[in-house]
Nucleic acid binder design. Sequence first.
DNA 1: TTACATGCAAATACTTTGCATATAA
DNA 2: TTATATGCAAAGTATTTGCATGTAA
Lengths: 144, 144
Amino acid sequence: MEQNLLKQAELKTTKKRQLLLFLLQKQTHPATAEELHEMAKSILPINLSTVYRTLNALTEKGILIRSIRQDGKAYYAIAKKDHAHHLLCNHCGKVIPIDTCPLSELEEKLEETTGFRITGHSLEFTGLCPQCLKEATDKNMKAE
Amino acid sequence: MEQNLLKQAELKTTKKRQLLLFLLQKQTHPATAEELHEMAKSILPINLSTVYRTLNALTEKGILIRSIRQDGKAYYAIAKKDHAHHLLCNHCGKVIPIDTCPLSELEEKLEETTGFRITGHSLEFTGLCPQCLKEATDKNMKAE
DNA sequence: TTACATGCAAATACTTTGCATATAA
DNA sequence: TTATATGCAAAGTATTTGCATGTAA
């Protein structure tokens, strides 16, 4: 499994990379480089630089998602594509999907601060798509 | 105006703090400590530490909002309380307001990457409020 | 064999802090 | 006058990088 992901990313299969991917797959929440390093080095010797380099490589290949939280640290998780939001054009009704969801982190924080158990969310942006924006702009220019 | 905010925060009114608040009020987008320092020092001599200390103090007092972006830097803006989202309980219908909106930064990024002009958004979390969560948990425990 | 992975130490970027001096209240 | 603000230099934290060595393909 870890091997598939590494081949898919065109990265050499090494014990350390396999271990990091294995640990990431076990996590229920995103983890920091330092946390992963702590977990990994109790299993085999590994340098923190290697952890950072591996996480960067996997993030660049799209295998991982990195998000910087309000504590200023980077958190890593296996990328999953099962969640989507979209942009909705007020004028022509066009819908443009967004490939990331910025809310999981916020949800965790809200659960902590409010005691609310969050099970879902809805999020929609409205505005003008590039074409309608251009039309609107052209119209305004004529009107001037 | 800057003076009012400082008095409200129980901080001494100094030229440097007034200047930083003045600059923050002029911004259309959140700014970093370094950006504010660049702007400020062209007007009067000010140390970067002073900028950081001032921004921290004002953030702690709730005068400013700080958000850490994906570039790992802290961005500061005058706090405004004109925008709200809420948590909606699936069970009892209770509504709990959330006092921050995490989306302005995301909107900027989406505008850049999609060319979409975003003019608004809707966001709603659903789940169970603390009371309903407790009831649900109690019920499950009896059932076991 | 050879290009890529790793360890180690040093460097970087952003932010914080200790201490002496300056200034608002 | 006195508590707080500031400058300066040093330290802290998360992350990156150069270089020599190790290892998967």
